[in-house]
């Protein structure tokens, strides 16, 4: 193959940038980012937290779900600059320790609630938040499915995810 003379190439774009400071999984972070950078891309490519996945970039699939100031959000429908000053939690911040799974993560594993795993972090963020928001969560079929609507899964048919929500509740209530 003929080789062309290499062009001088910048490492990054010439976009206007802005400095942001925020907390990610409890750690303070200050970075200069392009003003148009999506929060999802910031987490993934600037911070290396690649557990937040990008599945549609228009707010339907839920793969990019993170928590912003204690409430779930689509990180594809949020600019990194909007998160200036915010507290962000991602899937990497869910497990209590490197060798211990969060009960929701444990339940997903036990119940075969994941296959390809691409949507899984988004689901786990939604389910963790569901339990955090509801002291006495409604574990009826319709209520769980309603809480899960907003996250698409193409592999599991959702049934084992519903099961995992109930199992996570058992684990968290110490019922085995």
């Amino acid at each position: 193959m003929t080789r062309s003379i290499r062009k001088v190439l910048a490492k990054e774009s010439s976009d206007p940038r802005r400095e942001i400071s925020l907390s990610v999984n409890g750690e303070a972070v200050t970075r200069s980012v392009s003003t148009r950078l999506l929060l999802a891309d910031f987490l993934r490519h600037e911070l290396g937290l690649t557990g937040t996945h990008v599945g549609c970039e228009h707010g339907v699939c839920g793969c990019c779900t993170v928590s912003i100031d204690g409430a779930t959000a689509r990180s594809c429908l949020t600019l990194a600059v909007q998160a200036d000053g915010a507290e962000i939690r991602t899937i990497e911040g869910v497990a209590p320790a490197p060798d211990i799974l969060h009960p929701v993560q444990q339940a997903f594993h036990e119940c075969h609630a994941l296959q390809c795993g691409f949507c899984t972090p988004g689901f786990i963020m939604s389910v963790v938040s569901y339990f955090e928001e509801n002291e006495n969560p409604d574990l009826g079929e319709d209520a769980i499915r309603d809480a899960l609507s907003g996250n698409l899964c193409r592999c599991t048919g959702y049934q084992n995810i519903v099961k995992a929500v109930r199992r996570a509740h058992e684990l968290m209530s110490g019922e085995a």
Binding site: L49, T50, G51, T52, T90, I91, E92, V94, A95, L101, Q105, Q106, F108, H109, L114, G117, F118, T120, P121, I124
Partner: peptide
Amino acid sequence: ADAKLVRGEG
């Protein structure tokens, strides 16, 4: 395969 996937470590 689950352990890494549920942690977002896929």
